[in-house]
Design a protein around this nucleic acid. Sequence first.
DNA 1: AGCAGGCGCTAACAAATGTTAATGCTTAGC
DNA 2: GCTAAGCATTAACATTTGTTAGCGCCTGCT
Lengths: 239, 239
Amino acid sequence: MLESLYLNLGQHDALSDAEKALLAGAMTFERHFATGQDIVASGARPTYSTLILDGLAARYKVLENGGRQFTSLQVSGDFVDLHAFLLKTMDHGIVALSPCHVMFADHSRLRAITEQAPHLTRLLWLDTLVDGAIHREWIVAMGRRSKTSHLAHLVCELFVRLQVVQRTSGMSFHLPLSQVELADVLGLSVVHMNRVIGALRKVGVVNWANHTVTILDWHRLQEIAEFDPTYLSMMREPR
Amino acid sequence: MLESLYLNLGQHDALSDAEKALLAGAMTFERHFATGQDIVASGARPTYSTLILDGLAARYKVLENGGRQFTSLQVSGDFVDLHAFLLKTMDHGIVALSPCHVMFADHSRLRAITEQAPHLTRLLWLDTLVDGAIHREWIVAMGRRSKTSHLAHLVCELFVRLQVVQRTSGMSFHLPLSQVELADVLGLSVVHMNRVIGALRKVGVVNWANHTVTILDWHRLQEIAEFDPTYLSMMREPR
DNA sequence: AGCAGGCGCTAACAAATGTTAATGCTTAGC
DNA sequence: GCTAAGCATTAACATTTGTTAGCGCCTGCT
């Protein structure tokens, strides 16, 4: 049941059976969330962290003028709020962008891991560091890439991340995001978002229909995006 | 000598003398960097993490078209690359934006801390989590705030962070950033950066001259920025 | 003293992006 | 079967942001 988590953490360094058992032991109950439901509310002080077994979720903030900005996308195998284990107070909300099957890891048991399992602790820490690396890449994309390049970069990133947890099929993956939601990822108006998707389609590197993205020319897509997966730390090495 | 680090880490939770000693014990030699010098190069695999004792530095990435984007600003008391302890490979560079006095913490000794000092480990982890929280706030600012609001938010954030490590004087602080550099923070052209600074000045909430920012109306500045310091986790509580 | 370069600033114009509105398609609910 | 709502798409127009160029003020260098 925790396969996607093991794949996610295990991509960076070997994960022993004992460590897998510790992770499993930290889990409490599971739950389903419907599309659009809040998984964690902004301002909350959860006593557990939420792992996505299957589904797509996003962190977001809403401004006074009603504008919404997603700050990350979380896929199967991701903890959506592992940071809340130490940050304590959620400064943003987390919403399900597809039906989500999740499981909750108790903070007291995560704390026990930090007391007794240093290597596993480092791997969990690393998981949040990769989060940060992704944030930085998004900042670069928002600040200095063309919008087409930004979108291309997002497609590259999602494809690679989904591949790690075996949620791709060939060069395709399911991306259940409306253009409104996508606009809240890139920080654009819906109208312009539509233009940008059109532009990427026109180049012919992706096929994008029915919430399914198919990469037709990975090499050129990567080129447009200037995508370098280093920041995802997918090298398996001692940590 | 490590006062700023103690102030930084200690703002989130009590830091014992034993923990301070462990931190001090992790330090090796110190060094000075001149303005504009690279402190860490992109692609490097450092065996130590760099602490800023005094000065201002920034993480950045450069794109093929020459565009540069800063992804964070690091002040006194910040580790600029604590994440490299586990990420191993730097996916970005770090540059000194002012003369920087730094000290290096050996990764092997940081690792020893994770093996023997769980609470201190959590505080170091937390430090990188706050980094991530700041990244998220930047993403929101870049995507959904007006440029004036973005700049106002940056001023609020820097003021609060500098206050923690006692680098403010009254409502003023030193900000040795040229408009070119500031533009690379907000993701703007220099010309537009100049317009935005002008706009903020015109509102009369800040005085900005000679690399010194003075906040004239904190309340209104905070309003323009919609600044809510929750994300900085400045509450001292058990972690 | 004289010069080159970095910096802050402005103007004029070009390009990117947002806003408002409208169309047709699909789907959920009645 | 009908209707309302959400979604993708486009057009026309407004606003924001970028580009290129130039000016004046410094500072460091010779």
